[in-house]
Design a protein around this nucleic acid. Sequence first.
DNA 1: TATCACAAAATGTGATCACAAAAAGAGATT
DNA 2: AATCTCTTTTTGTGATCACATTTTGTGATA
Lengths: 230, 230
Amino acid sequence: MKPLVLPPLARPDGMTTHDYAFNRLRQAIMVGAFRPGTSVTIRGLAEALESSPTPVREALRQLTSIGALQFLENRRIVVPHITPARFEELILLRIALESHAARRAVAHLSERQIEKITAIDDSIETEIRKGNKVAALIANQAFHRMIYSANPDPVAMPLIESVWLQLGPILGIAMEHVTELYVVDRHREAIDALRRRDEEAVADAIAADIREGIGGFDQQAVARLLRLAA
Amino acid sequence: MKPLVLPPLARPDGMTTHDYAFNRLRQAIMVGAFRPGTSVTIRGLAEALESSPTPVREALRQLTSIGALQFLENRRIVVPHITPARFEELILLRIALESHAARRAVAHLSERQIEKITAIDDSIETEIRKGNKVAALIANQAFHRMIYSANPDPVAMPLIESVWLQLGPILGIAMEHVTELYVVDRHREAIDALRRRDEEAVADAIAADIREGIGGFDQQAVARLLRLAA
DNA sequence: TATCACAAAATGTGATCACAAAAAGAGATT
DNA sequence: AATCTCTTTTTGTGATCACATTTTGTGATA
């Protein structure tokens, strides 16, 4: 129960122990390193991160605030379970949030930024072709984040990432069971719409992208896996 | 700098010190007890709450995760400032989130719940007539929360409350400068739509309610106050 | 009066410890 | 073999302390 393979993550100079723990755990959950129902302990993580309980507890508390973890009544700390209904709500919430965020970002995107976004989209395909699932997932998130963050007041971004974190554990299961990766996204469509500054078309492309494939994965497959995770 | 009038809040039995601190601070920010730019200290709050730094720090860290507070680079803890642009984004985000949440709740609302919601709406008018601003604000939040929480998987609710928290400090300023309270909401309209199970009409009523008056207050007045807060 | 330098106080950070509750394990009983 | 009871271990909680950084306060200098 205590192998605890935590994806590595560089620790920039001057970063506090707490911030490091938070970012590392957050990233781990975001890319599906923990399965639903997994329980973690403060002391265990403190040891794994070579620190002490105090900063780790703060990081865990923060992660519960954004729905990534859950403090149960019996004081146990677990990765939340996901029911099919909850999964459906999260996807619909992604669509509502991200199509809104995309629409509000269009006017602020420079040509240069759109080029950068196109480059990220290319890197997604590259990673998929190389079979590197986690890298493809991270690149896909970067694609979406880059668009929404063009808004000078990206108030929706933290909320979007909260939803991503809640979907993270599902992605972990999906990546375990999906051997074949295939590109099924609406990214080119979204980029074209960005170039035309067509807010509605961008929002529609993003909505379709989310609906048809969660982070590059086939939704039907994920739905099937949900039964395994329950 | 340390009068720190924290609204009282009962502490249920068995609640941890951390949870108590979190809920108390959260409630204080939500109803506008802190002004934008206000800085708080861990030790100061620990003393005010008659506890120690550890649980307070955890509570503050959680509050930053949901945008209610901000840890600056110089390690100072402040209530975030709000620019007019940021305010606009937050309002639009409220509209996007809450009209979505309302739409997703309609199918799950029982007649009994709708009656309860109607009663809450009545209490809002009562409080306004009595001139009790904070109580009216809390009742208004309860009205919205009651609707959205009808969804058995209310995944949007925490995100909505996050936005409320970010708007809280503005409400505090508004309440200081607005002497006359008047009822300008679309609540009856929303309730009627709920009774007809008309999802789109409910969503529209909620959107209009938010757009035309933030929590029962006149938006123009708030916009004017924003300049004072900057 | 304004500005700079230095000392003192305040503050966030993180490790440690004692305590209580929960979980896990061991052994006996049915 | 299953269940119950009691002991041991694990674990979250919260207070305290030492440390480093920041802020504040004081006084000298221009």
